[in-house]
Design a protein around this nucleic acid. Structure first.
Lengths: 188, 188
DNA sequence: TAGCCTTTCGGAGGTTTACTCCGCTATGTG
DNA sequence: CACATAGCGGAGTAAACCTCCGAAAGGCTA
């Protein structure tokens, strides 16, 4: 079942790019809940065109985020080589936090896709979860991080904290330190 | 500046109560983002009447939640007498979590009011924060909980976890245990 | 280059929800 | 009982979502 799809027509590709750019700008300014009609308008494209390329808001978010997820995955692979698995994990969690706070509302969008295989963002969530799992396994087998902890936990906690940080205080980093500190094994 | 307000007229009080009941039902069924027109309709009251009594959605949520907040405050006062300040704090956090997960969407509503003095829910947030502060101070002076931690942190973390629990897995309790465990002082 | 088939475009229009405004009604007081 | 007014209700405006289909553009073939 190979869906041989011919290349996009010139106007289609042009509009696709314009929409992506406009969406990035709108998300940066108004968060991921920005009006889709506004995005279409500022891309100078009809609303129908937006919906044809991106049937749902999440599809649009996914497209905007795609490169970032690939980068996070690559960073995780690099960090697997780190001499300190614990520090590697924490470092990656900070990268993940930075990613989740790129746009207001993004953490919510990601969170609502983690357990919804129908969501266009599900694939991205899985990728991140796998990256986290690998780093976590390393840190756990080094005895640095409590063994009852899954990659899914990590993603959820980071997203929850990113979301909390959106409301007052920009405290996401502080809260992350607090929580991450508590995830280490107890040496009692 | 004593605003001497005469008692509500009979029809006004009747409608107020009907709206409160309808709102509770709607929130329980559809979350705190339930349609306000639906609430007015099921209360058999005009939409204008709803808005007169509750100018914003948050005002309505506040009214529905009021008793619960009073109860949480009372529970905190009782728990202050507990022989184990640490266990008392954790116990109260579990109560707080149960409260924050009463309705889908509630954690989000609370979180967005914590740092917004203009919100009708701000007062409730302050009450909870103060309750948490007192229990926290006890546990901290007993050396059980890390000293760099504020009541505001507690409320935000619990709400963030409650919110995370709404999305997939009903894992709020597990995540709370995980995080709470990490808030204790390190005995190294 | 011209003609034709297909992909893609665009926005009018239907729907849902939020919220306001003001003529009418119910209440309770003298 | 009548009058002053607090309170009612819903029509109307606005914003955002999303669908549908006639019109336009692209690109292939001769």
């Amino acid at each position: 079942m190979t869906t041989t799809q011919r290349p996009m027509r010139a106007d289609a590709r042009r509009n696709y790019e314009r929409l992506l750019t406009a969406a990035r700008d709108a998300f940066a300014g108004n968060g991921t809940e920005a009006s889709l009609e506004d995005i279409a308008r500022s891309a100078e494209v009809g609303i129908g065109t937006l919906y044809r390329h991106f049937p749902t808001r999440r599809a649009l978010i996914e497209a905007v985020l795609h490169d970032g997820v690939v980068t996070l995955d690559a960073q995780a692979r690099e960090l697997l080589e780190s001499p300190s698995p614990e520090e590697a994990l924490l470092e990656w969690l900070r990268h993940l936090m930075a990613h989740a706070t790129t746009y207001r509302g993004l953490a919510a969008a990601l969170m609502s896709s983690i357990d919804d295989p129908g969501s266009e963002l599900y694939g991205s969530c899985e990728t991140l979860q796998n990256s986290g799992d690998r780093l976590l396994a390393h840190a756990q087998s080094a005895g640095a991080i409590r063994p009852d902890l899954t990659g899914a936990d990590l993603i959820k906690l980071v997203n929850a904290i990113a979301w909390a940080g959106e409301h007052g205080g920009n405290e996401a980093d502080r809260l992350l330190d607090l929580v991450a500190d508590g995830l280490r094994t107890r040496d009692r």
